[in-house]
Amino acid sequence: MSAGTLKNLLKDFKKFNNKNLIVGFDNNDDASVYKISDDVAVIESVDFFPPIVDDPYIYGQIAVANSISDIYAMGGTPTTALNILCIKSDINEDVIREILKGGFNKAYEAEITIAGGHTINGDELLYGLSVSGIVNPKKILSNSSAKVGDKLILTKKLGIGIITTALKGGLVSKTLEDEICNQMSTLNKYSFDIAKKYKINSLTDVTGFSLLGHSYEMAKGSKVCINIYSNNLIYFNDAINFSDMGLIPAGNKRNKEFTDGNVKINDKITQSIIDICYSPETSGGLLISIDKNDATNCINEMKKNKIDASIVGEVVEYNNTYVNLI
């Protein structure tokens, strides 16, 4: 469901006003944050989706890496999680075991404990986690506190939505499939552990709402404008070819509608690059709004650690649009 549709659905509901809930629905942030004391707050997030690759073990790894990411995106440390699993009747036990094994191994790598879960039967296989984490309330990194002058770092390549659409059509080579699986199953822990040594002003992760959708949310919440520089974008090159072939996921249209009227795109940008920027990402990278004086050191440290990171944009004063794709 698009962010816009969801917002509309929820707008009239009564919400119990809890003074300790410091991050809720208001800015479509990555997770909720509930303050326990002056030094400790609990972060909660949930995510699950159907298989996007055939290998059940890798699917389990991707689903868990994706679910945990929201905790890093709030500036927190993940602690425990609960499995959420919907099983189709025709799926055999070995497949379920592999999915869960992938999930448990990824959680182990992230140093969090899967402490339980819930399983149901349904028409579609679904897997993910409800994840909890902790953060010092003074160190929460919301998606709505970017500052004019900040640089924007993206820590994974774009184009996953387009390539997984091509994958469904059997058009993706094994090498490329391995590459995207490797990226999707990589924890954002590694880029966050580097980024947190520097002055981060705002943070989110790029997932279903695409680079432009998440940039729009960050810009709107922060009352600024975000310039995205197309020449600095990092993406899987094959996403260009697949996009030219019309292998565009339905999510692109929803993301375009969600940001409608708030994203300006330079006439010189090719349609394929625009498609990549609107493409939903699965287990995408962190989008870090970082103090301009720290950006180069942070990106160099990430690159030294083999993270596919790039300075993709910067934060400027609001000027009648929230996002400029230049």
Partner: peptide, 14 residues
């Protein structure tokens, strides 16, 4: 569905 209309058109033109 409108989404495939756009995508098939794009593929055919390419």
């Amino acid at each position: 569905d409108p989404v495939p209309v756009e995508n098939v058109t794009r593929y055919a033109k390419s």
